[in-house]
Nucleic acid binder design. Structure first.
Lengths: 290, 290
DNA sequence: GCAAAACTGCTCGTTTCTGATCGTTTAGCG
DNA sequence: CGCTAAACGATCAGAAACGAGCAGTTTTGC
C-alpha cells in the first residue's frame, strides 16, 4: 500500500473546497492537468477525476484528456441555475438512465429544460451523434463536443432559453431523428404533457411528429401536475424516464403501451432487468404500435 | 500559491497546454518549425505534427512544410477569443458608428463575427427592435434584452459560433429585415466579401437577399485582403462602415454607389502582433457596456 | 454505540495518446 | 533534369489516462 500522506498534518479538504480551488486554479491558467490538481489538493487522481466530472456535468468547465480547461463561452443564466437546483439528484439520475437509451451514431433531438440539459452534458460519452436542439443551454453544453450540432431556429423565448413558435417548424420539417428527448412542465394521465406557453407547445408537437421514438424525461415533481398549454398526449410518448412514480399511474401508463424507466438516485434496489425487447416489463402491450 | 513555473517543464503538458504555447510562439515569430516546437514542448516531432494538424483544421494556423505559420496574405480565421481582442478600439468605434444607423422599431439582421458582436452589445440603447441573427455570441449578448430575438437555425459551426449551411435558408426565407449588418473575413474590390467557409458564405448570401439595406462592418485589417469563399459582391453592399480606408478604394467604392462611413477611433493601432512571452490569452473581464 | 451511507484510494481492463519505424513525397541543389 | 536529404503520413507497440468496481475509512443518523 502506498504511504499514507502523514507528511502534511493539515486536514483534508472536503468536496466543495476542492471544487472551489479547482476553479480558482483554472481561472488563473485556463488549463489544469489532473496531476497538477492531484498535487495541489493532496488527493488521488481518481478523486480529481470524479471532481472534474461533476464540475463538467454542472457546466463549469470542459473536460479534456489529462485535465480540464475553462471554456469561456457564455455564462449560465441564474434563472436556469435556480431551476436546476430544484431536484438535482433526481435530474441527474434521470439523465443517466436516459443516456443508456442513446447509442453511438444516433440522431437525437434535445428539448429545453434542465432535465434534458443534464442529459446533454453526458452526451460526450457517446460517439458521432447528430444532435438537433431548440435549447440554447443544450447548445452551449455541446458546442465544443465532437458531435454534429443542429440548432432549430425561430423566435427566442428568454424564460426557457429555447426557440419556439411557427418559425421553428421550417427547420424541424427538414430533419428527422431517431429519438426525441422531451422535457415538460407538467404531466397528467388526462392531459398528457402540458407547458406554460402555446408557442413552446407548438414546437414540441412539431418535433415529436419527426421522431421515431419519443422519450419524456420528467422528474416526479412533474407527475400529476398540469400546466397551461397542452403539448402532446400520453399516446405520443414511447418511453417515460422518471425518478419515482405512483403505482396506479405506472400500471395505467404501461397499459397504454408506454415504457417506464424509473431511475434510482440513491442506492435503491437494483431491479436489474430492463430494456430487453421480449422482457417481462410489458404486462399487456399488445402490438407496440407507437 | 501554485509556483509551477512554465519555463522548466518538469512534467508533461497536456494537449490544450501545448496548443496554447504553440500559438503563443507563433504569434511571436509568425513562423515556427516542427523541430523548434518539439524542443520547446518536449515532445516528439510526430506529436507536434498531430497538434499542428489539429490546429490547422480549426483554422488557427497555416501548415507549411517543416512547421507552421500565421499567413497574413491569406487570412485565416482566428479563435473567437483572439478575434475579439484583435482590434478592440477599431471594432468598438465601428460599432458605435453602426449604431447610429439603427432606429427604434427596426428589423435587423446581425451576422457573425466580433465586429458585429460589438454592435449587438450596444443595441440596448434602442427600443423595440426585432433582431434576427445566426450568431450564438450575438444571441448571448441579446438574450436578456427587451428586444424580440429570432435565431436562424441550422448546422452549428463551432469556429465562428454561427449557424450555417442549407438549413439556415428555411428560416431566412421566412423573414425580411430592414437592415442587415454583415461581418466578413476579407474584402477586396475585385472579389467583394470573402470568408473561409462556403457554408458560411451561402448563409450570408441568402440573408443579404432578404434585406432592404446591407451594411458591411469591416475594420481596416480586412480591407484589401481576400479569403477563400466569396459571399457577396461589392454591388450587394449599400453601406460600408470601417475605421480607416485607403483613398483610392474609397473613391472607387463611392463611384459604385457604396456609402462609406469611417468611424473615428481614438487610437487606430493596427499592430496586430502583441508579443507576449508565455501566458494565457485573457480577454478583458469587464465589458463596459450592458 | 452501532449501523448505514458517503467518500477516498486502489486495482484492473479498456481506450486513447505518444513515440518510433518505414515507405513515400516534396523541396532544394547541383 | 535528376539526385539527395529532409519532412511527411501511415502503422504499430508501449505508455498514459480513463472508467468501473471494490475495499477500507470516515462521517452521519438513529
Amino acid at each position: 500500500m502506498a504511504p499514507r500522506q502523514t507528511t502534511t498534518p493539515e486536514h483534508r479538504l472536503i468536496t466543495p473546497e476542492r471544487e472551489q480551488r479547482t476553479l480558482d486554479l483554472l481561472r488563473q491558467s485556463t488549463v489544469v492537468s489532473v496531476a497538477d490538481l492531484s498535487a495541489a489538493l493532496q488527493v488521488s487522481a481518481a478523486t480529481v477525476r470524479r471532481d472534474l466530472q461533476g464540475l463538467h456535468e454542472r457546466g463549469l468547465l470542459r473536460r479534456v484528456r489529462g485535465g480540464a480547461t475553462l471554456d469561456r463561452s457564455f455564462r449560465v443564466e441564474p434563472l436556469f441555475q435556480d431551476k436546476q437546483s430544484l431536484n438535482p439528484e433526481a435530474k441527474r439520475a434521470i439523465a443517466e438512465a436516459a443516456l443508456a437509451l442513446v447509442d453511438d451514431h444516433d440522431h437525437l433531438y434535445l428539448d429545453g429544460g434542465s432535465t434534458v440539459l443534464a442529459l446533454a452534458r453526458l452526451l460526450d460519452r457517446r460517439r458521432d451523434l447528430t444532435i438537433v436542439t431548440n435549447s440554447l443551454m443544450a447548445a452551449d453544453a455541446l458546442m465544443s463536443s465532437t458531435h454534429t450540432l443542429v440548432l432549430v431556429g425561430g423566435e427566442f423565448r428568454p424564460l426557457s432559453r429555447t426557440m419556439v413558435g411557427p418559425l421553428t417548424a421550417s427547420v424541424i420539417e427538414n430533419v428527422h431523428v431517431d429519438k426525441a428527448f422531451m422535457g415538460t412542465i407538467g404531466f397528467t394521465l388526462k392531459d398528457g404533457m402540458t407547458t406554460t406557453s402555446p408557442a413552446e407547445a407548438f414546437t414540441k408537437e412539431c418535433m415529436m411528429k419527426r421522431a421515431n421514438q419519443v422519450i419524456l424525461l420528467a422528474d416526479s415533481s412533474k407527475l400529476g401536475v398540469p400546466s397551461f398549454a397542452r403539448s402532446g398526449t400520453v399516446e405520443d410518448i414511447d418511453t417515460l424516464v422518471t425518478d419515482a412514480m405512483p403505482a396506479p399511474m405506472r400500471s395505467e401508463l404501461e397499459a397504454l403501451g408506454v415504457q417506464i424507466v424509473v431511475a434510482f438516485s440513491p442506492a435503491t434496489d437494483v431491479s436489474a432487468d430492463d430494456g430487453r425487447p421480449a422482457g417481462p416489463v410489458r404486462p399487456q402491450a399488445g402490438t407496440p404500435g407507437r
